[in-house]
């Protein structure tokens, strides 16, 4: 039982770190702001959620201490990070950042 909880929290931490790594690779590899934003706003959200869940499990099991601040942090990050991604995208578009040259469609341009 003890080993299961330890392995589970280690697994959560490793998955979180892996997702962070992938989102960092995404920032380096992907061609423009919009596609980079895809990688950042999704992978790092789930990455930090996994890391926080792993921490929660670890402290609950080692010290019998259930920290509600971690739960709050999970909720706050879950609510705010998609909004941040949207706002960065929107301000990039309005300040005229070009999309990647292989982009095929732009419905928003037709409007103006």
């Amino acid at each position: 039982m003890i080993a299961i909880v330890e392995i589970l929290s280690a697994l959560f931490l490793l998955m979180g770190v892996f997702l962070f790594l992938v989102s960092a690779f995404g920032i380096i590899r992907l061609p423009d702001v919009y596609t980079r934003n895809h990688a950042v706003s999704k992978s790092s959200t789930l990455g930090i959620l996994f890391i926080l869940i792993g921490t929660l499990l670890f402290f609950f099991h080692q010290h019998g201490h259930f920290d509600f601040r971690i739960v709050l942090a999970i909720i706050f990050i879950f609510m705010t990070s998609p909004v941040a991604g949207h706002l960065i995208n929107r301000s990039a578009y309005h300040s005229g950042v070009k999309m990647w040259d292989q982009s095929v469609q732009d419905d928003l341009k037709k409007r103006r």
Binding site: L30, S103, D106
Partner: peptide, 13 residues
Amino acid sequence: VVLKPKLDMQPGI
């Protein structure tokens, strides 16, 4: 998408 060796997606709005 990120780990695929070739970047062959077609982004758009």
